[in-house]
Design a protein around this nucleic acid. Structure first.
Lengths: 165, 165
DNA sequence: ATAAACTTTCAATAATACTTGAAAGTTCAA
DNA sequence: TTGAACTTTCAAGTATTATTGAAAGTTTAT
């Protein structure tokens, strides 16, 4: 397969995957682009490559930096800002896990803590309490796993997987 | 907290969570509703409770069944269909993992297999190959973990977690 | 066969999310 | 200070996705 074709497919696919992961398409595409480029890219270059506007490029590059998935790179003697992505896939995984935990799991845990103290003792309320307590437990376990993953310096996750098989 | 308030918050939150998980809001809300109700619910009851149209209720109930998260229940002597959700949170987790793997991971693995055979040996192409191979490896490992999780009869995931801490 | 009870479909509409591009803001060298 | 080089903002426009509701389809009892 030709490089240009492969690159295009890859960027496109990454965008699609991103959208089913709560990350918007363009942000995922910029990330994909930075992942495979050798040199850091400027906003101009990103705009050009992905055929997007300046505003869009700017917003999504900032979002990537928010997520800890891209960094500014200053080139000596240049005013322009350049951007690069970390290419270590495990680090990316950790970053994404961290962000999603913060944005999604944490609020859910907070909510569950609030609502499991619902008053009453009708069958309905008992059932509600049972279900939400189960969810709370599950959320707690998930949190523990994610915390371990996030804090892991090396790759315990897959080391364990190796032992299991 | 009053039951009605707690229930409302819970359904609302579940809907929000759902949307950042690739499941649409209404589908997640119907699921939340079925999770806490003691009896199976009819389309009418779902419409009433969530203030949604018949078409919407019907479509999303079907989607839930597609995902394996809800089942039809036939009540003797009734024409109407009723629906219930499995309340075992681990089973739900497994179902969701299964569906998402099929819809998201599988296509990515397929794509990576295609594009890692890109031809050329410029620095650019070499980098591309390196990055996509890493992704391929990561995707493969993720697949293995998911498969283990999906096939697990009991809860190995958290048993191991227990041993780790 | 008919009709009542119920479910499904789908074109139109509404809601949401994304993108643009030009104007405003910032920084810095001279 | 000025103005050129660059970045950020945001209102308006576009695209995408979800929802409605009425009509068409299906099933079952009689």
């Amino acid at each position: 397969m030709k490089y240009s074709e492969a690159k295009e497919k890859y960027i496109h696919a990454w965008g699609t995957l991103g959208s089913s992961w709560g990350v918007n398409r363009t942000m995922a595409q910029i990330h994909a682009l930075l992942m495979v480029s050798i040199e850091p890219l400027s906003t101009e270059e990103i705009m050009e490559e992905l055929k997007i506007s300046r505003g869009n490029a700017n917003m999504n590059v900032r979002a990537l930096m928010d997520w800890g998935l891209a960094d500014k790179v200053l080139v000596a003697g240049e005013r322009k800002e350049y951007f690069k992505a970390d290419k270590d896939i495990m680090k990316i995984g950790v970053q994404v896990a961290k962000e999603r935990k913060r944005r999604e799991l944490d609020p859910i845990i907070k909510l569950l803590n609030e609502i499991t103290v619902v008053d009453g003792d009708t069958a309905e309320v008992k059932e509600f309490r049972k279900v939400t307590k189960d969810l709370q437990k599950f959320a707690g376990q998930t949190e523990s796993v994610l915390d371990l993953f996030i804090k892991s310096k090396d790759n315990w996750f897959f080391k364990i997987l190796g032992k299991l098989r």
